[in-house]
Amino acid sequence: MSAVDRVSGRALPMRGDSIDTDRIMPARFLRAITFTGLEAHLFEDDRREADARANAGNGKPHPFSDPAYAGATVLLVNANFGCGSSREHAPQALHRWGIRAVVGESFSEIFFSNSVALGVPCVAVSRDAAGALMTLVEKDPATIVDVSLSDMRVSAGGTSHPIALPASARASFLTGHWDATGLLLREPEAIARVAGALPYVTGF
């Protein structure tokens, strides 16, 4: 596994608090036994609604439909992003679409850890910084947003903001150990020892 210390690229602004995983990936697309092709259905219902309005001359298309943001690798969000269902289908689809880092005010814990497992850092910035970055990118979608886990900063268009990321997640990205299974399998005797000391495992 490779270390993740920097994600740099064009960004996609996704405004709104508490965007839940049902909206990111509606349940009907979970009717499959693989994650293949999920990216085609990202925000499908929201997109259909926003795009229909845009076609009627009312507002902009959904950012995930807007050609201006095609190829973005950084997702910009507000607060409590990815709340609700634990479905990894949501971060899987974002990853398959090309997202390699998420920058926002805050994240649901399950979404955050699912993203870690895919090597996608979710880094926190202030509400003001999130708003400023989104405005910058909306004005000029070609803006390069640079997320650095070594410097713990996000920079774009001559501005720079501090980012927050729990120390454990940061260490996992910087050392390339974001896929935990290998580490978890390393000390089977220690696992067996803990299991053997639990009364409910040994039958009381």
Binding site: E88, Q92, S113, A117, A180
Partner: peptide
């Protein structure tokens, strides 16, 4: 607590979680 699919893999493989 709830976990994602990669963590389901972790628990299946090791019966533990990080």
């Amino acid at each position: 607590f709830g976990i994602g699919t990669s963590q389901v893999r972790d628990v299946l493989a090791s019966q533990t979680l990080a």
